[in-house]
């Protein structure tokens, strides 16, 4: 297959040192993704380059990073399709840096926990299909892969470190939407404050960068609609 060389300008940071950029030249073919190019750099040129990755097919959400300024999953970002002679690779914004392209997901996941972390949902595909014997209904894993792209792309998260952020709010909405026996009121109370769903200012970048069609912005607006509905209901003495 036709090989070409592409320059990678990669953000570098080791604890105790000053951040910098380092440029590598990488051979790529039409199937090379940014993630495979980074692996190639680590294997053949620089064993100190650190980055997160796991599944290689946009199912785990670990390889979120900024490529040419855009939040993407490196594993499904084709290098040649980017069309730039130099590919700039940087870590996600709005998360503490551990090293190089690695950010600390601790805060991000901590914000998820009060949502009750919906991980599985009732199946929604192939509505005609029947459920096998011995299974109440098909369960499937949630769409959200917890990659953190939305939090990095959000202009409000950029200025408000306490903002819960799109992913956590989307998880909250999933819980309200499909409570499966739990009380949505606690989750609604959790998001009903100035750093919660009301902080969003409708830039919609979260939904634009989401690699998994979660539409966090839509979820945030749905939370607001639900809260508004409940508050108006309370005004008229209903719950």
């Amino acid at each position: 297959m036709a090989e070409q060389t592409v320059q990678f300008k990669v953000f570098r940071y080791k604890q105790g040192e000053r951040p910098s950029y380092q440029t590598y030249t990488v051979r790529v073919d039409p199937r090379t993704t940014v993630l495979r190019a980074l692996e190639q750099i680590r294997q053949e040129q620089d064993g100190t380059l650190a980055f997160r990755h796991s599944c290689f097919h946009a199912s785990c959400g670990t390889c979120g990073m900024k490529v040419n300024g855009q939040e993407v999953l490196a594993c499904v970002t084709n290098v040649l399709e980017l069309g730039t002679p130099v590919v700039v690779v940087e870590p996600l914004d709005n998360a503490p840096l551990i090293t190089d392209l690695v950010v600390d997901m601790g805060d991000f996941y901590a914000r998820y926990q009060p949502a009750g972390m919906p991980m599985i949902r009732e199946s929604e595909f192939l509505p005609d299909s029947q459920v096998p014997e011995g299974v109440e209904h098909h369960m499937r894993l949630e769409n959200c892969i917890e990659c953190g792209l939305c939090l990095s792309a959000c202009p409000v998260a950029g200025s408000d470190p306490l903002y819960l952020g799109p992913a956590a709010l989307a998880a909250a909405w999933r819980m309200v939407e499909e409570p499966r026996g739990r009380d949505p009121a606690t989750v609604l109370a959790w998001v009903d404050h100035e750093h919660g769903c009301w902080r969003c200012h409708a830039a919609f970048e979260c939904s634009e960068v989401c690699p998994s069609n979660v539409d966090p912005a839509g979820a945030i607006m749905a939370l607001r609609r639900e809260l508004t509905r409940r508050k108006i209901g309370q005004l008229f003495g209903r719950r």
Binding site: A50, F51, R52, H53, F56, C60, T62
Partner: peptide, 11 residues
């Protein structure tokens, strides 16, 4: 050496 599950497991 890398992130956890970055070898065969995640893939």
């Amino acid at each position: 050496r890398g992130e956890v599950t970055s070898g065969t497991t995640g893939r």
